[in-house]
Computed example of a mutant assay.
Amino acid sequence: MEEALQRRVQRYGWDKAAQYYETLWQQQLKPAHNSMFALAQISVGEKIIDTACGTGLISFRALEATGVDGYVLGTDISDKMIELCMQVAKMNKSENCRFERMDAELLVAGDGEFDVSLCALGLMYMPNPVRALQEMFRVIKHGGRCVVSVWGKRPHCGWASIFEIVDKRVTSEVCPMFFNLGNDGMLERSMKMAGFSDIVLEKINTHLQYKSAEEACAAAFEGGPVALAYHKFSDVVKKEVCEEYLQSIEAYKHENGYTIPGEFVIGKGSR
C-alpha cells in the first residue's frame, strides 16, 4: 500500500474506532502494558513521549509514574484519539502533559528532549516502522530508553482472520504487514537498524476474553484496525463479516463467551 494512503486509512480508521477502543481493549492489552512499564522503570521527574498514544492508556499511567515534576507528551495520528486524551487531562486537571496529532515517522520534538519513549501496539500500523523507531531514538537523551510492544506471530493470534475477511471486500489490504514485527528477530532487528543498543525482548502469551459474540465482533470490527472499512460496509456486508469471523473463532468459544489466544512481543532499547 502506498504510504500516504496507509496513513490516511489509519488516521480515519482510528477516528472511527476511538469511542469503542478503550472499553473493548483496555483489559485485553493490559499484559503488554504491564510488561512495558516493568521494563521502562519510569522515575519521578522524567520526561516521556508516548507515540501512537490512542486514548492515553499508557500516557496517563506514565504521567502517574513520573509525578508532578515530570512531563508526558502523547502523540497519535487520529484527531479523535487526541481529543479524548485532552478531555481526560482536562477532567483530571493534569497540567504536566500535552497531546498532539502527529505522524510517528516525523515527530515534532527536539533531539534528546525526552528520557523515555513509549509506543504500545502502534508500530504495526505505520508504513515505515524503522523510520518511526529512528524518531523515537532521536528524541530521547543519551542514556535514555525506549520500550515498544507489538502483536506476535500471526498463527499465535486467534483473531487474525479479521484482516483476510475484510481484505476480500476492499480494494487494498487494510494492514499489509501487521504481523511482520512479531516474527522471530524482526522487532530486535528493526530496533538495531534504528540505532538502539542493549536490546531486551519479552514474549507474552495471553488470551482475549469476550463475554459474547457481539462483544467479540465489536472489538474486532468497531474498536480496532479495520474500523474504517467496516463502517463503510452495508448492513448486509457487516452481518456477513461478523458471521464469517465468528466461524473463524468457533474453536475458542465456550458457554461464557470466547477465550481467544494472543501473543505480544515487548522490546526495550537504549540510546
Rank of each mutant, 00 (worst) to 15 (best):
K153D: 05
T51G: 14
Y210E: 14
A194F: 08
V265D: 11
L133T: 06
V147R: 06
G185T: 06
E64M: 12
N34V: 07
F221Q: 00
A160Q: 02
G13M: 08
V170Y: 01
I204A: 07
A32F: 00
L121W: 04
W151Y: 05
P127A: 05
L187P: 01
Y71R: 15
M86P: 10
K211G: 14
A109E: 00
A213Q: 15
F178E: 06
A18L: 03
C146Y: 01
N256S: 15
D115Q: 06
L208G: 11
F233C: 10
T206V: 08
G112V: 02
A219S: 15
R138I: 07
G13C: 08
H207I: 04
E243K: 15
I42D: 00
L107K: 00
N256T: 14
S78F: 05
K47T: 10
V150G: 07
D103E: 07
L201T: 04
E64Y: 06
L118H: 10
R154S: 01
K238N: 11
A109C: 05
V236I: 15
G224Q: 08
D184N: 06
G13T: 08
V88M: 12
I199D: 02
E202G: 04
T171S: 07
R98S: 14
R98V: 14
L181K: 09
V174T: 10
E2Y: 11
G182P: 07
